[in-house]
Amino acid sequence: MAIDFPAELQALSSTFGQIEAVLDPAGLERKIAELEVEASAPGLWDDQDNAQAVTSALSIAKADVDRIQAFASRIDDLGVLIEMGVEGHDADTLAEAEADLAVLKKDLASMEVRTLMTGEWDERDAVVTVRSGAGGVDAADFTAMLMRMYLRWAERHGYAAKVLDTSYAEEAGIKSATFEVSAPYAFGHLSVEAGTHRLVRISPFDNQGRRQTSFAAVEVIPLIGQTDHIDVPETDIKIDVFRSSGPGGQSVNTTDSAVRITHLPSGIVVSMQDEKSQIQNRAAAMRVLQSRLLLLKKAEEAAQKKELAGDIKASWGDQMRSYVLHPYQMVKDLRTEHETSQTDKVFDGDIDDFIDAGIRWRRALENE
């Protein structure tokens, strides 16, 4: 069936116009001008936290404008290509236009998802923690697979990712790991990955080759900024120092540089061992602790508001995604119903479709 290029191009332009109205390029240009004034101030770097916030916001705004302009140009180019193909009755040119149209549609869908991330912390960097659950050594191995999946996702997008802490399991895999992903809207994207993940496969650790079901939990929190710092009294925390360890409990550091901070009122525990010095690890641990406490505070406030309003709607179910490797190959999100049989690609970080579907699902819930 022949493609109705004029209609497709019109629909594409219309959707882009709606997205452009939300992103507001004129407003972004004004924001860039203001931020450039701040960035050029002589004493900007006297306050490094503020300087980083200003330069980061400037970088994000410029990238948004560049993305909008580039997409508008691609639509114009597609229009020219279609016109050339139709007027010249050139099948090869029309085939190229069809391929370009498919790519533009996919990219436009991703850009549209960006307009759905309007949460208070969606623009922030993300701190992700993966923990093994039920399933013994298979769960620890599954946890390591998930950690690699998210790190590969970040690598695919050119996002900076830094492992902050890893607790290795005795036989294989990891008990837990925490890493930071630094990118515009990292939290907005990864927050929909929070929950319980389930793996079904023939266990490589079972000499009888039996099928094993194992679980891992994913926690995602936004990295706090300078303006939402939470004061943590010294009397509320317990600090332990120890030597960093590798797989199987092997010591990888000859000094007690690793730090574990326990927040006594809440019971939250944060460990850091990636940095070279105890001081650096303590600073990194405090930053993550403050992020978790901020999220806890906001969650308590939200729960109180729901209680006062009589809102009894259930929250997300714990088990949000299944990864089945036997007797068939399938990864399925239980909230959005999005699924794929390309399990190897998923574990290699190709999870954008799952994330996009999760963001759309979350917005639909918010609009109910």
Score class of each variant (00 low, 15 high):
D4K: 12
D4S: 10
P6E: 10
P6C: 06
P6Y: 06
A7E: 05
A7I: 13
E8H: 05
L12C: 07
S13F: 03
S14P: 00
T15Q: 12
T15M: 08
G17M: 08
E20A: 00
L23P: 00
P25E: 06
A26T: 07
L28C: 01
E29H: 00
A33V: 15
A33S: 12
E34W: 11
E34Y: 12
E36I: 15
A39M: 07
A39D: 07
S40F: 08
P42H: 13
G43S: 12
W45Q: 06
W45V: 11
D47W: 12
Q48R: 14
Q48A: 10
Q48H: 08
D49W: 05
N50V: 15
A51C: 08
Q52A: 12
Q52N: 10
A53N: 06
S56L: 15
S56K: 14
S56V: 15
A57W: 02
L58P: 02
A61R: 04
A63W: 03
R67E: 12
A70L: 09
A72Q: 11
S73D: 08
R74M: 06
R74A: 09
I75A: 03
D76A: 13
D77C: 05
L78C: 07
L78D: 04
L78Q: 07
L78M: 11
L78I: 15
G85S: 03
G85P: 00
V86D: 06
D90W: 10
D92V: 14
D92N: 05
L94E: 03
E96H: 02
E98G: 08
A99S: 08
D100M: 09
L101V: 11
L101K: 02
V103S: 03
V103K: 11
K106S: 10
K106D: 13
K106E: 14
K106G: 02
L108Y: 06
A109W: 06
A109T: 09
E112P: 00
R114S: 01
T115Q: 01
L116K: 07
M117G: 01
T118G: 00
T118P: 00
T118R: 09
